[in-house]
Design a protein around this nucleic acid. Structure first.
Length: 476
RNA sequence: CGGGAUAUAGCGCAGUUUGGUAGCGCGCUUCGUUCGGGACGAAGAGGCCGCAGGUUCAAAUCCUGUUAUCCCGACCA
């Protein structure tokens, strides 16, 4: 079996999922470790995925009326301290700047862990009238959180993200915006990343520091652990009160604005890896892959082969195609592009040229298909669409298979211990039950899904009447 | 921040028990033959053994400290 050689390259995901993950991020050239503790170097191939994510989301943000801005990366301590819950939430993990050159600063500044305070400070200055609303800003930047343990893409001390911050005249508008952006994220994850998500609300215990309500999209990784893939918060007018963001309404009355914030990060790349990857490496959805097609010449030294490859590349100008004419052997190239998760491979050799054909090979199933060069562009287009859809369906099926239902505490405990994946269970709404469940089963509440199901009428923990069904699970 | 492990060439490792000045595989460079699943041969290049102290005639090896990484928990996007 040739496959033997492939699996020795990386740790099998069933043997050690964590090791498999770190093998992939390094061997697919996504990241390298740096000499800065907890911070990663995102290499060209990894960054290209991020750029594609940015490109799509940026367009969606603009279509929904948002503008990009850039805020300072430092926050004076006094500013950070203005909203009480917010400081308490972030204080344990902020990095402080205390000196400028050799001079000690009069007031220390933190490196932004998130920019709510800066946006609020700015909004207080520029918003005066209802005519100034809504303010729909977004920024792409990096933030710093002094994490204790780190993993590439999933948790690093510095990471790239976007943070949207908006201010509205009414609570209704803010709520609408919060849900609108959650839907933008969910749609993006499902259509581009081929990752099915559960949309829902966080419990009070799990919500963002300073928010009235936090909404989330939760996705399930291959190992059955959950990953919070994006969040959207409704702040109500709490920050506005703390920062004095007021506007004069049509009625000539002074009112606080209602705000939202929402973000996704490079963590999404971690999700792509852990949802679609396999023992041969990364598997990228065609809609986000930096290279959609790897064109591998066979016996490229023979006359006409490379010329034909260039010709075929021209025919496929609607896609990102890489012709690999390096002097590695074809077998090496096959394995290499599988490791890098390129969705489609085309093999083109003397025999094909003779027959005016090429061989298409899917990354996800390794299925081969011989197609005529006359309609190769159409074939590639269809196959990429098929792969995109197949990845989503496969991930969805996996999530369904690994989602369990627990009706009472014993059942919950048993599932938490023995079966990885989401657990659906009823909850009475009491935080004490949430804490008890976490302590005794190690699973935490992931969200209160918008799509509710009535599993039973009793809380899985205390047996009292329960109104809400929650998703529970072990999380990254 | 607790518990465990690791640090030797770009990568993966041996050598550490029993101190004597570093080796293997892959990769890299050059040339030739190959090319439909990680090709083969020949000749080369590359390391003050994580860092800082200490013991010793002598330290990759023993001792102390320190830093980083990985895994498992607690905390977070």
């Amino acid at each position: 079996m040739q496959d033997k050689k492939l699996v020795t390259e990386i740790t099998s995901m069933d043997v050690d999922f964590a090791k498999w993950y770190t093998d992939i991020v390094k061997k697919a050239d996504l990241v390298d470790y740096s000499s800065v503790r907890g911070c990663m170097i995102i290499r060209p191939y990894g960054y290209a995925i991020w750029e594609n994510i940015q490109k799509v989301l940026n367009q969606k943000f603009k279509e929904t009326g948002h503008e990009n801005v850039y805020m300072p990366m430092f926050i004076p301590e006094s500013l950070l301290n203005k909203e009480k819950d917010h400081v308490e939430g972030f204080a344990p993990e902020v990095a402080w700047v205390t000196h400028g050159g050799h001079e000690k600063l009069a007031e220390r500044m933190c490196v932004r862990p998130t920019s709510e305070t800066l946006f609020c400070d700015h909004y207080a200055n520029i918003i005066e009238s209802y005519r100034d609303l809504p303010k729909l800003y977004n920024q792409w930047c990096s933030v710093v959180r002094w994490e204790k343990t780190t993993r590439p893409f999933l948790r690093s001390c510095e990471f790239l993200w976007q943070e949207g911050h908006t201010a509205h005249a009414t609570a209704e508008e803010a709520q609408e915006e919060t849900i609108r952006m959650l839907n933008v994220y969910a749609d993006f994850c499902e259509k581009y990343l081929a990752i099915p998500v559960v949309k829902g609300q966080k419990t009070d215990k799990e919500k963002f520091a300073g928010a009235v309500a936090t909404y989330t999209i939760e996705s399930l990784m291959h190992d059955g652990k959950a990953l919070q893939s994006g969040t959207s918060h409704n702040f109500g007018d709490g920050f506005a009160k703390a920062f004095g963001i007021e506007f004069t309404g049509k009625d000539n009355k002074l009112t606080n604005v209602h705000q939202t914030s929402w973000g996704v990060s490079t963590r999404l790349i971690g999700a792509i890896i852990m949802v679609h990857g396999d023992d041969s490496g990364l598997v990228l959805p065609p809609n986000i892959a930096p290279i959609q097609v790897a064109l591998i010449p066979i016996a490229q030294h023979k006359e006409g082969v490379l010329d034909k490859c260039r010709e075929v590349k021209e025919m496929l100008s609607n896609f990102t195609v890489k012709v690999d004419d390096s002097d590695k052997s074809p077998g090496w190239k096959f394995a290499e592009y599988e490791m890098k998760g390129v969705p489609l491979r085309i093999e083109l050799g003397p025999k094909d040229i003779e027959n005016n054909q090429a061989v298409l090979v899917r990354r996800d199933t390794r299925e081969k298909k011989v197609v005529s060069l006359d309609n190769i562009a159409q074939e590639v287009k269809e196959m990429l669409a098929t792969i995109q859809d197949a990845l989503f369906q496969k991930a969805l099926a996996h999530r369904e298979e690994t989602t369990s239902v627990a009706k009472d505490f014993d059942e919950l405990k048993d599932i938490a211990q023995n079966k990885p994946g989401f657990i659906k269970a009823m909850w009475c709404g009491d935080e004490a039950c949430e804490i008890k469940i976490k302590e005794e089963t190690t699973v935490t509440s992931r969200c209160i899904p918008f799509e509710q199901e009535e599993i039973s009428d009793k809380c899985v923990c205390c047996g009292k009447p329960a109104k809400k069904m929650l998703y529970w699970g072990k999380a990254y």
